[in-house]
């Protein structure tokens, strides 16, 4: 039953399912390190996905009208830029409201999630109708470009190559970004300053750090990274299509991973794959009834809760959420 192929197949699926989570988690970690608890991440991921779809669609549509074949690299560039633009804009709205206007972070985040999901599903359903078309979106060329395998490695290394080098490039980008963010937070001055902003903004301020600028940048860049998770989901996972609600609760799962990984981007890589694995594990374990599968799907959340409780009980300083998480910073000037 459990052959090596079967196991490798599971690992590959876990990675595919874990990748959107990894983008979301790393984006949220970067954001939370600045003290902003962005509960708008699920909405931002939706926006990242739909913006990519819109960009890709406009490009493919233009090519179609002009009667030329879409160029793969342009497909990628257009969709990528559109996605980054969309998610950064939403993150900017969050930043403006919570940092400049000092609005409550939870409320703004939840409102943005509502807004983002609404906008995503709106365009997902209506984009074609703007161009007088019926049916549902299917971006063949763009999706194909995003799913392109690594040419040499994927078929020369046997099963290993098939498992680990057959993904679209965004899977590797996710890992690279996670490693870069890890390195950035640990080893650079700016990363150190950012962590100080999230821990103790008053101290950071006194040390001459521009607290608001750091918060803005971390939140917007974090949003852009999270948006890529949405882009990966629509272009690679859903093969260039859009289903209303298809993204599901992945955005919240990404926030769960932030806790599970104890706010560490490097730990988030494996955590995302584990969560991705748990997300699909039910289909890979033989002989489970439908209801038992749902219990397995509950595991990521249960595990996260246990980690959250355990960490708060042990009170180890390094494992706590950033100390100023959820609070807005205000220095009264007289």
């Amino acid at each position: 039953m459990f052959t090596l192929e079967y196991l490798m197949g599971f690992v590959a699926t876990a990675i595919i399912n874990g990748t959107p989570l990894l983008f979301g988690a790393v984006g949220e970690i970067l954001t939370e390190k600045s003290g902003n608890l962005n509960l708008g991440i699920p909405g931002i991921m939706y926006i990242g996905g739909i913006s990519g779809i819109i960009g890709g669609f406009l490009y493919e549509h233009a090519c179609e009208t002009a009667g030329i074949t879409p160029i793969p690299i342009l497909c990628i560039i257009v969709a990528l830029l559109a996605s980054l633009l969309g998610s950064t804009l939403i993150a900017l709205v969050y930043s403006f409201l919570t940092i400049t206007l000092k609005a409550n972070q939870n409320v703004v985040g939840l409102a943005l999630t509502t807004l983002g999901v609404g906008l995503g599903d709106f365009y997902g359903g209506s984009l074609l109708s703007f161009f007088g078309k019926d049916g549902s979106i299917y971006l063949e060329a763009t999706s194909k470009a995003f799913k392109e395998k690594i040419p040499f490695l994927s078929d020369s290394l046997g099963l290993f190559g098939q498992t680990f080098f057959s993904f679209g490039f965004l899977v590797y980008v996710a890992v690279i970004i996670a490693v870069i963010v890890h390195f950035f937070l640990k080893k650079t001055r700016v990363g150190l300053n950012l962590r100080a902003v999230g821990e103790n903004p008053a101290t950071a301020d006194a040390a001459g750090i521009n607290v608001n600028l750091y918060k803005y940048l971390a939140t917007c860049i974090g949003g852009a990274i999270a948006g890529l998770g949405g882009l990966y989901f629509v272009m690679d996972y859903s093969v260039g299509g859009w289903t209303n609600g298809g993204f599901g609760d992945r955005g919240w799962l990404a926030i769960a991973i932030v806790i599970f990984a104890l706010w560490r981007p490097n730990t988030a890589i494996l955590s995302s794959y584990i969560f991705g694995g748990l997300y699909v594990a039910s289909s890979y374990i033989m002989g489970l009834s439908g209801s038992e599968k749902e219990i397995i799907k509950m595991l990521p959340y249960i595990v996260t809760i246990i980690v959250l409780v355990f960490v708060s009980a042990r009170k180890k300083r390094e494992h706590q959420p950033p100390a100023s998480l959820g609070l807005s910073y205000f220095r009264e000037e007289r």
Binding site: L97, A103, A111, L112, T114, L115, G118, S126, N244
Partner: peptide
């Protein structure tokens, strides 16, 4: 316009952002 049913969420989100701001 099949997606128009989702405008409700968009408007709710915007309205709340206005009030919070």
């Amino acid at each position: 316009m099949p997606g128009a049913s989702n405008i409700g969420d968009v408007l709710t989100g915007i309205m709340i952002l206005f009030v919070v701001a």
